[in-house]
Design a protein around this nucleic acid. Structure first.
Length: 117
DNA sequence: TCCTTGACCATTA
DNA sequence: ATAATGGCCAAGG
């Protein structure tokens, strides 16, 4: 049988699901998203998918490099757009960098485990 | 088919 | 903090 229009590969679906589940006001790295989707080491696929599925309304601004920097080049429209969106939801961006210790999604897990918050 | 290009990452120096 | 390296792998030429 053919599924007509949007048959999204399982790997893509898993990644999209994780991206959509990043809480507002928090951020996650490409690699972390891949791991949470059960695809460790597949960070590049996450980046590719964000571009491929840009028609979907995803919270793409919450996805950063592992060091907390915005992936787009400084000065690009994508960079400015992301910085603006992050700022809008209360995430501080300084020099194109977000403090993962403060806004990282993983921080929630850490807090849960170590009861620091 | 080979080669290059990426919204990447961990490690090592 | 920056830089090189090797790993990852889908697309496009």
């Amino acid at each position: 049988m053919k599924s007509g229009m949007a048959d999204i590969p399982p790997e893509h679906a898993a990644i999209l699901r994780v991206i959509r589940s990043i809480p507002r006001g928090r951020v996650a790295s490409y690699g972390e998203i891949a791991r949470r989707a059960g695809l460790p080491g597949r960070a590049r696929l996450v980046g590719r998918i964000l571009g491929d599925y840009s028609a979907l309304k995803l919270p793409w601004q919450r996805v950063l490099r592992s060091d907390g920097r915005i992936a787009f080049p400084r000065g690009s429209s994508g960079y400015r757009e992301q910085r603006a969106r992050l700022t809008d939801e209360g995430i501080a961006v300084r020099n194109g960098r977000i403090d993962l210790g403060r806004f990282g999604w993983q921080r929630d897990v850490d807090a849960e485990l170590w009861k620091l918050v």
